[in-house]
Amino acid sequence: MHAHPRHTSRYSIFPRGFFTPKGQMQRTIISIDPRQTDTAKLADIHLMLNQGHDYELFDAFRTVLRGYDIPDEVAGIKKEVIVKSAEIMKKAKFCMIFFGMGCTHTDGHNHNIDAAISLTRDLNNHTKASIMAMRGHYNITGPGQVWSWQFGFPYCIDLSKGTHAHMNPGETSSIDLAMRDEVDCFVNVGTDAGAHFPIPAVKHLKKHPFITVDPNFCMASEISDLHIPVRIAGVDEPGVVYRMDNVPIQFRSVIKGLPGVPSDEELFDLVYERMCELTKTEPVWLAAKADRKYPQNPAVS
């Protein structure tokens, strides 16, 4: 409800669908959350589990789906409620699981989602089921897509070798790199490391040059050695944005950006050009940009 205000009205709970013309009346909503949230209030069933026990709960659903018995209480939830919820999922025509950071940013991290994915997979033997991440920031899916096609990994990419890309969350993830002092320069692009990173991690990063590329003043820009403002993608800069279900949406610019403020792309082209100058190499990948001019939006003058 609050993290993605448009989600309930446009996609998940209320809208009238092709096969669900009565909207919410034709949907059953189960909310899994240790807190009494507004989404939980909307739900038909609220499974108020003990914090940090999502993994056990999903395992219980799977065990029930396979026809086995489970203990009387799992993760603080009564067996009857789990059995009933599993039955609802199984009998649904189409079961959709949305998950967010409450699940991914607690103990077990990926394993919690792994269990939920396994549940989705099992449900497909009974009905049709899908699972989708409620991504945090608006175009967070975009870099995941681009890096996947360029390097084969969606995040945590270590390109330092120059010969091949390496990824291993736990080692090459930004907080691990910071905490272990594995980097000697930090560039913060389009996010707010100051607000989102644990304070000890930020303290480690502050030992070295700290650069922020962001249209706004934010906690990271406040503590940066250098803050470079850029245009806002999707507002004064057009381009392709990936919706959280990976659908590409072609954004136009709606207002004209401030003079002298570059877009992210222009900025990094300039940095690249200067780096090529310093290393005496040919900036061949700039040429690739020249032929891809963004269209002028006639509505913007």
Partner: peptide
């Protein structure tokens, strides 16, 4: 397929040779 198979890159990624780096060729993986 690319993003859900990190292991497809591990140990099988083609290394970008010094010559490829000099030619401005990009990193290859997978």
């Amino acid at each position: 397929g690319r993003l859900f198979r990190p292991e497809d890159k591990l140990l099988s990624g083609v290394c970008r040779s010094a010559m490829a780096q000099k030619n401005g060729a990009r990193m290859e993986s997978g």
